[in-house]
Computed example of a mutant assay.
Amino acid sequence: MFMIPYGRHSISDEDIEAVVRVLRSDFLTQGPRIPEFELQIAKKVNANFAVAVNSATSALHLACLALGVKRGDVVWTSPITFVASANCARYCGAQVDFIDIDTRTYNLSIIKLEEKLELAKKEGRLPKVVIPVHLAGQSCEMSEIKELSKKYHFRIIEDASHAVGGMYKGEPIGNCKYSDISVFSFHPVKIITTGEGGVAVTNDAELNHRMARLRSHGITRSQEEMTIPSEGDWFYQQLELGYNYRMTDLQAALGISQLQRLDEFVSKRHDLASNYDKLLKGKPVISPFQHKDSYSAFHLYIVRLKLEEINVTHRQVFERLRSHGIQVNLHYIPVYRHPYYAKMGYKRQDFPEAEAYYSEAISLPLYPDLTFDQQELVVERLLTPLGHQTIF
C-alpha cells in the first residue's frame, strides 16, 4: 500500500557524500566533525556552546545533571510531550509534576504555571527546574517564564526538540536568552537529522564543561582537573560517574550537511502549513494557532477535531486515515497517563486542557518532500468520514 508518513527525513546527495567522506577517513566515532558540528549549531542559534550527544533524551539528562538535579528535588514540565521530558528528571532521582497546557498553543500555560508556583511556595515545594516544551516547533512564552524564574528561583531547560530553526521574538530558539540550557533533537522525523542524535546548547561555560565531561563517562584528560600529576600521555581520570552519550563523527558529518538546508526545510514546512490552513478553512477542525511572538519550526501540524460537529469518534477518524495509508499520529499521550507515572498518583482532572486536547488531536503528515497533491489527499481522507457512521 502507498504510504504517507506523518514525518520523514530528507537526504540529499551532499548528505550521502559527507558521510562517505567520514567512512573513508581515519575517524568513525570521535573525530573532527563533532566539534565542527557543535560550533556550527551554536553559531546558528546564537549560543556560546554546544554539546553533541547520541539523542535529545541524553541531552536532557545531561542538562538536569549539570544543573544539579537530584533526589529530593522537584522538576516541572508539560504533560503534552514525549516521556523523555519527564524521564530526564526521574533518572536523577527527582520527583516530576506537570503544568496544564495553554488552550491555543498547547504549550504549558503561563497562567497555570504562575498559579502552581504560588501554591508551591506556600507549601515549600518549589521546583528546582522547569522544562518548557516547544510543542510542534512553536516556542513557549519564554520571556514570561524567565520572569517567573527570577521570582521563584528555579532554573530553566528548554526542551526545543521540535524547534531547531524556529524563532522567538525575532531571535533563534535555543539562544538561551531565557534559559540555562536548550536541547534539540535530530531524530529522522525532526527538522534536520543525524540519524539519532541531539545537542544541548548553553551560554554558561561551566555547564558546557560539565555536560561535555558527563557525556563521556565523567573522564578528563586535562591536567588542571586531575587529582594527581599525569603519569604519561596515556593518562586520564574518571572524576565522576558519567555516561556513554557521545555522538559519532558519522552522525556529525550528516548533521553539518543537513544544517546547510535548515532554513530551506523550515520555509518549506511553513508553505505546507499555510496550504493545510487553506484546505481546512471552514471545516470542522481547529488548525494550529501561531503566537505573534513565535516563528514555529513546524515540526508537526496538529489539528483538533470539532467532535461536537461530527458524527464519528476521534478514534474512527484516526483509523480511517491509517487504513488509507496516511500514517497520522497523536502527539502526545499525556505523560501522567502512562502506567509508570499513573502509579505516582496524578489526577487527570487536574489537567483538563491536556485531557481535552488528547481527546481531539491528530498530527497530519508534514515534511519537506510532502507535495500539495498529497496534502489534498490527506485532507480529503480526513474529511470524508465526517458525518458518516460507516468506516470502509
Rank of each mutant, 00 (worst) to 15 (best):
P5T: 02
S10V: 14
S10A: 04
D15V: 00
R21D: 15
P35W: 02
F37W: 11
K44D: 11
N48V: 01
A50T: 02
A52T: 05
A52Y: 10
V53F: 09
S55Q: 04
A56L: 06
L60Q: 12
L60I: 13
L60F: 07
L62W: 06
R71H: 10
D73H: 13
W76G: 04
S78I: 02
P79N: 00
I80T: 12
V83N: 08
S85N: 12
C92R: 01
F98M: 04
T105R: 01
N107C: 13
K112W: 10
R125G: 04
L126M: 04
H134A: 14
L135H: 04
L135W: 12
Q138N: 07
S139C: 10
E141Y: 12
E144L: 15
K146D: 11
S149M: 03
F154N: 04
A163L: 07
G174E: 07
I181Y: 04
T194M: 15
E196C: 10
V199S: 00
T202A: 01
A205Q: 12
R215L: 13
H217I: 05
H217G: 00
H217V: 03
S222W: 10
M226R: 01
E231W: 01
D233T: 08
F235N: 00
F235E: 00
Y243P: 07
M247V: 06
A253G: 03
A273P: 05
A273R: 01
S274E: 12
Y276A: 10
S287Y: 03
E308W: 11
E309V: 11
Q316V: 08
G325Y: 05
G325N: 01
V335P: 03
K343E: 13
K347C: 09
D350M: 06
Y357F: 15
P368H: 00
F372H: 13
Q374F: 02
R381A: 07
L386V: 06
L386C: 07
